[in-house]
Design a protein around this nucleic acid. Structure first.
Lengths: 196, 196
DNA sequence: CTAATAAGTAAGCAATCATTTACTTCGACC
DNA sequence: GGTCGAAGTAAATGATTGCTTACTTATTAG
């Protein structure tokens, strides 16, 4: 029935399965709305395994956010500063391809109420906005508050676009294709981060 | 001890008190995170009165959103179309004055999961974005999808700014004063809604 | 083949949730 | 001033929550 490459019991595999399902639920419905049974059932896995692998529901959420932070950091650290916004915009515009990219963005607006997890999210957003603000000026000095504020408004705009597109689901934004959204987002990026 | 103008028992007064406290909690922490006891205790009122006056927690949330919709509609319907965005931006920038304005915006990104309530929010956002999109064109025809999409991105940007400012609380956006934010938001509005 | 350990499961735990019920107290009206 | 309905309260309901425990099954090593 089953191939010889798939084991019936694989801890790291089910752990990853839980992580993927959890990110999907947390991103779409928020922390307290989703129950551990929702996640376990979605993954086709026993509820107790959540506590075994992640200690608690909170731990699972932190693991989700942590992997999201890692994803975004890898993408934004390797890219030249002036492309960061474009890469994030691409995550929102894309719909047909891997929904993981989209959920990663949505996860950033979800909170479990835990202070440590909130600090993690805040640190990521601060880091990215600082890099964004640095991109608009030629001098290597740290950006001023005015530039920082615009960069953070840009990130907020991208997160808000994510919400409007999937969570609130207002057409035509919810149903627009990738090219249409990219065009509109480009206008937004250029306005808040003028080159030079 | 107490003034003669305040009655000890006033149904409409406690109803309004519950409504105000509920909007504050729902807007800041979301629907499922806040408990009915949080709201009742915050209002200094017995828990059972929530079910008496609003039938259910869901009913109370719907009443909150409904009053938010009324507030926003009154403001946006009376204003000329090209000032709508500015008025909404003012709600976000303002911090020293009445926090109600800010919470009204935040409430639009909170969902109880109920389909009817979600539809109410979607209808409001569609209506406002249509008016916004109409403002950028001279012809009286209904706006095309491209203009509509930009207007919705603008609203999403404003909602995202709300989240970044209070919920996620990233400095300097969280601590910036009204004038600084207004300036930056104006850039954003003009970019997405070019006059003419 | 067989023991030992890792992986997974079923059942139930205490705590908390929204809601309902039976009851008490206030306030207005004749 | 007494009465009656409205306003408010305390306590308990059943359902759901996150999590633990005792157990079974699969996998691997000797």
């Amino acid at each position: 029935m089953r191939g010889e490459t798939t084991r019936r019991r694989d801890a790291s595999h089910t752990r990853q399965l839980l992580l993927d399902t959890a990110r999907h639920h947390f991103a779409r419905y928020g922390f307290s709305t989703t129950t551990v049974r929702d996640i376990a059932d979605g993954a086709g896995v026993n509820v107790a395994l959540i506590n075994r692998y992640f200690a608690s529901k909170e731990g699972l959420f932190e693991a989700c956010l942590s992997s999201a932070v890692t994803d975004l950091r890898r993408e934004t650290d390797s890219a030249p500063a002036n492309e960061i916004a474009a890469k994030m915009a691409q995550r929102i515009a894309g719909s047909a391809d891997d929904p993981r990219h989209h959920e990663t963005m949505l996860l950033l607006v979800r909170s479990s109420g835990d202070e440590r997890t909130d600090a993690m999210r805040r640190a990521l957003l601060t880091s990215i906005s600082t890099r964004l603000a640095s991109a608009v000026q030629s001098s290597p000095e740290p950006p001023g508050d005015a530039a920082l504020l615009r960069a953070q408004l840009l990130i907020g705009a991208l997160l808000g676009a994510s919400l409007m597109r999937t969570s609130i689901a207002v057409p035509p934004l919810a149903t627009a294709n990738e090219a249409q959204i990219s065009d509109a987002l480009e206008v937004l990026v250029k306005a808040l981060l003028p080159p030079g």
